[in-house]
Amino acid sequence: MRCPYCSCEETQVKDSRPTEENAAIRRRRVCPDCGGRFTTFERVQLRELTVLKRSGRKVPFDRDKLSKSVAVALRKRPIETERIDRMVSGIVRQLESSGETEIPSSTIGAYVMDGLRALDSVAYVRFASVYRDFSEAADFQEVLGEIARDDVTGAALPVAKKL
């Protein structure tokens, strides 16, 4: 592993421990040249995924980008980091186990909507406002009405069609 500070090719692992319900390994490393310390994570990757954007472009799937977009929706919400990590890991597992290597961005967005709906209704509305491209206040009212109806009936909001 290359040192992010001085680009030295040799770093030493000082500590390793499992994370995310044993789905990843967290390693603390130190560089013998500059003394810099940093953390790396190792995860199993079943296949290389490509995201098909609305514009037709293809980009490599980036778990960190998914995590950041979920974090933006959950900003200042009282949700434990472990629950967020489990949700993101679940979405990645669904994508990897779908059998497809090219995933439309709309499918990823739908999975995030499903996860946020179960996790936090405020984050769900925040994400929906971007994902569904809200243009007026009535769009918010419609989603809030769906949430209110689902809360009364106890039904889950069907967002994503499963692969």
Rank of each mutant, 00 (worst) to 15 (best):
P60L: 09
D62E: 12
D62G: 03
K65W: 08
K68C: 08
V70L: 00
V70D: 01
A71W: 03
A71M: 02
A73C: 04
A73Y: 07
A73W: 07
L74D: 01
R75S: 13
P78I: 12
P78L: 12
P78C: 07
I79G: 10
T81A: 08
E82W: 10
E82A: 13
R83S: 09
R83C: 07
R83L: 08
I84S: 01
D85C: 14
R86W: 11
R86Q: 10
R86L: 05
V88C: 04
V88W: 00
V88M: 00
S89E: 15
G90C: 06
I91A: 04
V92M: 13
Q94D: 11
Q94A: 10
E96C: 05
E96G: 03
S97H: 12
S97E: 13
E100A: 14
E100V: 11
E100P: 12
E100G: 12
T101F: 10
T101D: 11
I103L: 05
P104Q: 11
S105K: 01
S105R: 00
S105I: 00
I108G: 04
G109F: 10
A110V: 05
V112D: 13
M113W: 09
D114M: 06
D114E: 14
L116F: 02
R117W: 11
R117I: 13
L119D: 08
L119S: 08
D120V: 01
S121Q: 15
V122N: 04
V122I: 14
V122A: 07
V125L: 11
R126Q: 12
F127H: 03
F127G: 07
A128P: 12
A128W: 10
A128M: 08
S129I: 15
Y131P: 05
Y131A: 08
